[in-house]
Design a protein around this nucleic acid. Sequence first.
DNA 1: GTCATCATGTAAGCCGTTACATGATTGC
DNA 2: GCAATCATGTAACGGCTTACATGATGAC
Lengths: 224, 224
Amino acid sequence: MLDLAILGLLHEQEQHGYEIRRRLRDELGLFANISFGSLYPALSRLEAAHAVTVIESSGGAAAPSMPFTGSLSGERAGLRARRAGTPRGTKRSRKVYRITDQGRRLFEQLLDADERPGADDARSFGLRLAFARHIAPQARLALLERRRAQLTRRLATDQVRASGDTLDVYTRSLVEHSTEATEHDIAWLDRLIESERLKQPAPRSENREPHTGDAVTATKGTSP
Amino acid sequence: MLDLAILGLLHEQEQHGYEIRRRLRDELGLFANISFGSLYPALSRLEAAHAVTVIESSGGAAAPSMPFTGSLSGERAGLRARRAGTPRGTKRSRKVYRITDQGRRLFEQLLDADERPGADDARSFGLRLAFARHIAPQARLALLERRRAQLTRRLATDQVRASGDTLDVYTRSLVEHSTEATEHDIAWLDRLIESERLKQPAPRSENREPHTGDAVTATKGTSP
DNA sequence: GTCATCATGTAAGCCGTTACATGATTGC
DNA sequence: GCAATCATGTAACGGCTTACATGATGAC
């Protein structure tokens, strides 16, 4: 699941590990404080699988496919010069990763094929929804409806539990609150689903133009 | 955390592994479908730590320091007789566990000392609340208030996230919904806390000011 | 006598953690 | 020059999963 999160972030913008961690915390909120002991091995794995490539592992400019001097001292000089322009940041000795075409394929594959059992459902769904803008409208709808079905099932088992007479006060309160929370979640999903339906009124069996891939481009280059 | 759940169930009634799993699923709801690959090793660990003892293992040996007939056929006959009384179940070759005094101590210790980082907060709290009736009133109150503080912190970070301008539609919706859910949780906790305070009006161990003045929301009555 | 269910266990693996080790850059 | 921060990595471990192995009991 971490792989999915990483690919999702790199989908938007090339970045280095340390920064990925920050965005995971500040933007996604999931993986509140993912540890480097998870993150870096994950990046290595993805690189080995050719899902990402290192486009810069030292000082050069982060511009895509822009060749730069191999001179280490030259790079250093360049960075010193650049530092004057940017008050903070712009460190050296970092590896900037970029997602590959294969990585993009893997991303989409993970996005709708993963949902492995044993995984935290809520987290898994949250992660997918956070990247929902990158997927086709009908896949988005399917994601929402799968989640809705999941919650409906939970509601059913909660009600069975609540109907038992063996629960003590605290457990009963817990179950009742859980039921309310689930109902709240479902109502929210229903609003999202309706809003999706309004955006794409007719599902139209096949040959649906698969979302022209603009709007995804990196809006900012190397800006700190 | 599984250890805590097991001890909590055995706290109430001696049982064998298979049955513990069923109660974990049907009563607690947490550990929806704990696997035997987790459960049995956990029981073995607890036994090795003298937190539980095997009080009956119908197949033959393994009863600790309690001698009984070594006759296999004898055991079988006894079980056959017992089966007639109970229409289903009452299998043989199972190990019935009982919690020990040491286990009870461990239980209480886990109950308020655990809360390890990296654990699923909600699940951990739910588990503790499910066993809340076994702990001292002030410990119960402390549990609720710790959880409340936790959720308040979450609310704060969610609000920071929401105030950023980089979030896309779906992520924003997610954060907003998460905020609502957390507020809902806090309101529920406040109801529980108030009801606890009513049950034990004056904590007054020494320097305790029963900080009133909360009276937060409480939109709906405690009993639906 | 065979199949479903109850019952216990082991082995391998996944996915995350903390703790530890190292080094570059920059502020003071 | 020294400490704080940025940045990357390795090692050991934790807690759970699935897959596999075994066997007893009861229904038919």
